[in-house]
Structures are given as structure tokens and as C-alpha cells.
Amino acid sequence: MSSMRLFQLGLRRAAAPGLRAQPARSMVQRRLATSQADSAEILAKQRLNRPVSPHLSIYKPQITWYGSGLNRLTAVILSGSLYLFGFAYLAAPYTGWHLETQSMVAAVAAWPVAVKVALKTFFAWPFFYHSFNGLRHLAWDVGIGFKNTQVIRTGWTAVGVTAVSALYYTFLA
């Protein structure tokens, strides 16, 4: 027997003391398939009896996984926007686009106020959330705030400070 097999048998014997009196061969279930179709049928039946791994639908939503998802989403929004603008700026001389500061300021000044507010909000919220949640993660890196109550409190604090900062930046700055 291989060492891995011996280790597994030892674990089974330790976990179920009533099985010690049985020989090792009786602990292993064997099914012999006579053909390819039989083996596929046996596997299909075995899959029905296997436990289903945990899924997101069985967990109660918590600030920790909302925060993790939002942190990743805000990173994609911010970095994706930066890359898109960077590539557009590099391609501008070849495409005839005018992305220099004066022409962009003139173009944005001509937009309706609702569009300006929407664009500022679209970039302010991810920027502030990613910044404040990043500070939270930096605190975790030095070992501060690992208790469940602190994690929940700092998660909601990041959301609240983000909302206040984004609204201030969008409407007052």
C-alpha cells in the first residue's frame, strides 16, 4: 500500500473507533463497471449523493463581502477609466481628437448641469470609497481592527464617510 493510503486508513480508524475490528478491505466500497456506459451511470448516481459545496445563496449578506466586492469594483472603475483615457490621449494625435486641457474644459462647460453632476458622482463615489476602504485595509495590515465588531463598524464607517465626501465633492467643491 502507498503511504497516502495508509495515512487515510489510519485517519478513518481514528475517526470511527467501531470500525477497528473490521478488516481494511471492508472499508473501501468497490463497484466494478462492465462497460463504459455502466461506469458513466455509476458516476452519475454518485454525483447525486455528493454534498453540494456552500453557495452564496445560503449565507447572510454581510458588510465584509459587500465591502470586498465594492472595493474590487471601484478599483476596476478607477483603473479602467484611467487606462481608457490614457490610451485615448496617446491615440489622439493620430485620430484627430482634441484631448488637450483647453478643448476638454470647453467641451465640459457646454454640457448640461445634470450630466456634469452625474459624471462627478460616477467618479467621486468610487474614488472616495476605494481610498477610505484602502485606509481600512492598511490598518489591517498592521494588525489593527480584526475583531468582528470593529470590522463591521469600520465597514459601515467607510460607507458613511464615502457618502458624505462624495456628496460634498459633487455639489460643493
Results as ranks from 00 to 15, higher is better:
M1T: 15
S2R: 11
S3L: 10
S3K: 14
L6P: 06
L6C: 13
L9F: 04
A15G: 10
P17M: 03
L19F: 01
A24G: 02
R25Y: 05
S26A: 13
Q29H: 15
L32C: 14
S35C: 03
S35G: 06
Q36M: 04
D38V: 08
I42E: 06
L43I: 15
N49V: 14
N49W: 13
P51I: 10
P51L: 14
S53Q: 13
P54C: 12
H55E: 11
L56T: 04
Y59L: 00
Y59E: 00
K60P: 03
I63K: 01
W65F: 04
Y66N: 01
G69Y: 08
N71A: 06
R72N: 11
L73K: 02
V76T: 13
L82Y: 14
Y83A: 15
Y83C: 13
F87W: 11
A88H: 07
L90I: 04
L90A: 09
A91H: 04
P93R: 09
T95M: 07
L99Y: 04
M104W: 06
A107T: 12
A110L: 10
A110T: 12
W111L: 10
W111E: 06
V113R: 13
A114T: 11
A114Y: 08
T121R: 00
W125R: 00
W125I: 13
F127H: 00
F132Q: 04
F132I: 10
N133Q: 08
H137L: 14
D141Y: 12
I144M: 01
K147A: 15
N148C: 09
T149R: 10
T149C: 08
R153S: 11
R153G: 11
W156Q: 06
T157P: 03
V164S: 03
L167W: 00
